[in-house]
Design a protein around this nucleic acid. Structure first.
Lengths: 335, 335
DNA sequence: TTGTATGCGTTATCAT
DNA sequence: ATGATAACGCATACAA
């Protein structure tokens, strides 16, 4: 019993064409008739059917937000903060946000002409194939970088430099044995972070050893914490650690406390990305800040431009990072 | 240049009707022709246009997840954890998740026949009018309770009992001066929590005073923290506080640390809902646990049933809560 | 079993 | 300025 354009047309005594014209604000309809039509629309509380419109215009009016790795991400403040930016920017447009978490959903979403464009949160190598992504032929903007050879515009933090700043900050405090907690190397993000760590450590003429870096999977918080515990136990000389995410940093703090190390007295910890909660927990987390909300907004705007056929100036937009000194870092204790 | 059902029909040398039939797995098509059609579909990599299908079937295939109060919620683990449950359950269905954060978006989404049903995160009184919600005539399930007179099925934590348990736990530890940090009373949740606090305090024959409860708006974290500081300063006799959410509890811990109170030595803190990060921070937060993911799942399943026209047995599903003793609570210090 | 024809709610083209 | 009418891509009632 939905009310259609025909209903308002007949009630207003005009053709559907005219109604459609006033609906889309197109010229070619008399002032008086237009007025009458508007009244009827109001009266009947008519709302156009977006699906039908989409059918003829070949546009759906919604864009897909594709986040791999399951719904886990929702509880990761890194993602949710960027998502906040995406949502805010999207509110400025006429598009709706279609979220999908599983690959089955994602495939269906992108293949069934259900969206006009997609925002893709950087998948890992094994997750979404570049080939398939290209084959769907949709405008795509990726957040957080994917593969080097990806043809899609990308918006991301300068994570490599971020980690460098973190190492430097620790060094300046007097730390000489600096460890690193990283995510899995199947993600470009982790690769970049490791690069940053390595190169800065060498620049500072500290000795680099793979023993000092721990690679964990953030999905399994429990396993990750366990790994950190043994890592810290096996590397007693480490006085400070940099992490590739705040999430991991919070885990390290927990692991440290479990084995009787206090932060920052016994161990300095710095995170990365500076998610909102990092300033909120006690002690507040030293981190390398980046405008995550801005990244989400920028990605959305870029996608809009892409969909309008505009030329994209920068195919790779990187947001600068900045070290924030808070309460999980201090001068190393003499051992 | 999208490929349609006609293309596969002609290439297979059959009518679109037959193609449509195999597509929807309906009987009435020969084994051999069906096979041929399937081959062509594969060959052409044909995918049905969901919009067109929706037009004729009067279904869109997606459901709206309506979260009021802006994208703020994304960074609130309470919401994102429930959302995780919604997403997981949704993955089991053929529906897509359309998220909306602003009221303009929400109106458009629900009015333009863009969705078949909606999951509504409990709005505050002033946000979404019951009248309007009913007028759109969509199947709606609300999460976390809305208005008493709401006709929509609802899934929520037993927050009233949760707060009672929190008060009791503190009492059993020896606390006699127990404060409360609550959200704004425009939300049913806060109303319920206050009720629980009041009634249990009276049952325990502690004296109730409105001076002992602070009402803050969780949106403005900064302001909230400030308010908590002055609250704690003005109520030195309080040795323990219960909070209507873990989010607030984390804030209290920060406020306490700012004015030199240590948790739990000087002040015991209990949260509510037990979001994942609460067990992860240091010291880990004592809280009243509830299966948030389960709530999300349950709401989704209920919505599915509602859309299928099934009779809903329980119009009000409440999930029980259970106190979890962790590290932010202890025996009160003698003053 | 298979095909034809119509309609779903719009927009757009072409007449008038 | 206005109105028929043909698409859009699909499902289905009805014929064959």
């Amino acid at each position: 019993m939905t009310i259609s354009i025909k209903d308002v047309a007949s009630k207003a005594g005009v053709s559907t064409a005219s109604v459609s014209r006033v609906l889309s604000g197109k010229p070619g309809v008399g002032k008086k008739t237009a007025e009458r039509i508007r009244e009827v629309i109001e009266e009947l509380n008519y709302r156009p059917n977006l699906g039908a419109r989409g059918l003829v215009k070949q546009k759906t009016g919604n864009i897909a937000v594709v986040v791999p790795r399951g719904s886990f991400v929702l509880n990761n403040p890194f993602f949710s903060t960027i998502l906040e930016g995406v949502a805010k920017a999207m509110d400025q447009t006429d598009y709706n946000m279609l979220m999908s978490f599983t690959s089955i959903q994602q495939k269906r979403l992108l293949e069934t002409q259900a969206v006009d464009g997609v925002i893709l949160f950087s998948p890992r190598h094994e997750e979404l194939s570049l080939e398939w992504l290209e084959s769907v032929g949709l405008p795509i903007v990726v957040i957080g970088s994917y593969l080097e050879e990806s043809p899609f515009p990308c918006v991301r933090p300068d994570d490599e430099d971020g980690i460098k700043q973190a190492v430097t900050a620790l060094y300046n405090l007097g730390h000489r044995d600096i460890g690193m907690i990283n995510g899995p190397m199947s993600s470009m993000h982790s690769v970049r972070c490791l690069n940053g760590y390595k190169s800065r450590v060498k620049e500072l003429e500290l000795d680099y050893s793979s023993d000092n870096v721990l690679e964990v999977d953030e999905f399994d918080v429990f396993k990750a914490t366990q790994a950190m515990k043994t890592f810290l136990n096996n590397n007693k000389k480490i006085t400070g650690v940099v992490c590739s995410s705040d999430y991991l940093a919070i885990g390290v703090i927990k692991a440290a406390s479990m084995i009787g190390l206090s932060v920052p007295e016994d161990l300095s910890v710095v995170g990365a990305d500076d998610v909102p909660i990092s300033d909120f927990i006690t002690p507040s987390l030293s981190s390398v800040h980046v405008d995550l909300v801005g990244i989400g907004k920028r990605a959305t705007v870029t996608l809009m431009n892409l969909m309008e056929g505009k030329q994209i100036r920068k195919k790779d937009v990187v947001f600068e990072m900045k070290y924030i000194d808070r309460s999980t870092t201090s001068i190393p204790k003499n051992k």
